[in-house]
């Protein structure tokens, strides 16, 4: 039987398969290297790095919800200096694309990180975490058109590396935000970060999380993210990396059919350290069973079916 071709191109970024970890659910790979060969992945993505070392939020930081979890980690970071000497060399040494996720508290901070990483070398793309819902001051860049445009312009000015804008689902119209990111220089979109939510302990009558609200992730959000990816990919020309509740090959194929060019596996890594290799194997099996030769041919295939009627 013919081995299916799982490689995809996201603009200039070529990946040997469309599967990578979601930022913040994989550290930078080291912990999971004991469970599977990280070189199998399409790309590696680190936990968003900040310019300065930070401690992150006060506990409790996580709480489980039906088919999901709320988290408010608050971007603890080793800071960019240690990242360049410890984490980045590890990521670079892997035989897959190195996507560096960065986060800042202002456009200047984002810009500075982008400049440093542009000079560092060996970075294949930069993912801008514009959408962390858990900064103490609760600014989500990707929910404010002005702020998002400002950050993107600043970053675009400083690098020619492919820029991925990670969108927030906490908006009225995600397509509008996707268009805005396209207009201000993003090369790709990542959809999406976590949904702001909360939980209350009925016994203590207090919010469970130390920061009151947190971000919802996991299988619970998958249908909503699928709808968002479906809408964005039909409205915007940029490649979209889907992220939200993807736990296995079937989930991944669903997102590819909805128009995503690649997928990120997030919360699923926590439950199953083999979620990423199993997702890759699941896509391959789907291609062997029922797909065309190249995975690129199933990207967006569901729109065409939907347009053609039943």
């Amino acid at each position: 039987m013919n081995e299916p071709d799982l490689s995809v191109s996201l603009g200039r970024l070529r990946l040997k398969n469309p599967v990578m970890p979601a930022s913040g659910t994989f550290n930078f790979g080291k912990e999971y290297a004991e469970y599977f060969d990280l070189n199998q992945m399409g790309a590696v993505v680190n936990k968003s790095v900040m310019l300065q070392p930070r401690q992150g939020n006060a506990p409790p930081r996580i709480v489980e919800t039906p088919c999901g979890m709320l988290s408010s980690i608050g971007l603890p970071s080793q800071g960019i200096e240690e990242f360049l000497t410890v984490q980045l060399p590890f990521m670079r040494a892997l035989e897959c694309a190195a996507i560096v996720s960065v986060s800042g508290t202002s456009a200047e901070e984002f810009g500075e990180l982008v400049s440093v990483l542009d000079r560092a070398g060996g970075v294949d793309a930069l993912e801008l975490n514009l959408s962390c819902p858990n900064f103490v001051d609760k600014v989500i860049f990707a929910t404010d058109c002005g702020l998002m445009a400002e950050v993107l312009q600043e970053c675009r000015r400083r690098t020619s590396l492919p820029l991925i804008a990670k969108l927030s689902p906490n908006v009225t119209d995600i397509v509008q935000m996707a268009r805005l990111a396209e207009k201000h220089g993003a090369d790709m979109l990542c959809a999406v970060n976590t949904f702001t939510g909360m939980a209350i302990d009925v016994r203590t009558r207090r919010p469970v999380l130390g920061t009151v609200t947190g971000g919802l992730s996991g299988p619970a959000i998958k249908p909503i993210v699928l709808r968002m990816v479906w809408q964005i990919t039909q409205a915007v020309g940029l490649p979209v990396i889907a992220c939200g509740g993807i736990s296995n090959g079937t989930d991944a194929v669903e997102f590819l059919l909805a128009g995503a060019a690649a997928v990120q596996v997030g919360t699923a890594n926590f439950i199953n350290p083999l979620a990423i290799p199993e997702t890759i194997a699941g896509i391959r099996q789907y291609m062997l069973d029922s797909g065309p030769h190249s995975v690129t041919e199933i990207i967006g295939a569901a729109w065409r079916r939907s347009a053609a009627g039943r």
């Binding site: 936990k47 506990p59 996580i62 709480v63 926590f270």
Partner: peptide, 17 residues
Amino acid sequence: DAPMACGVGTCKGCVCR
């Protein structure tokens, strides 16, 4: 005992002071 999601150091959820 802190709430834990991953048990291996990747979620950063299980902090103690």
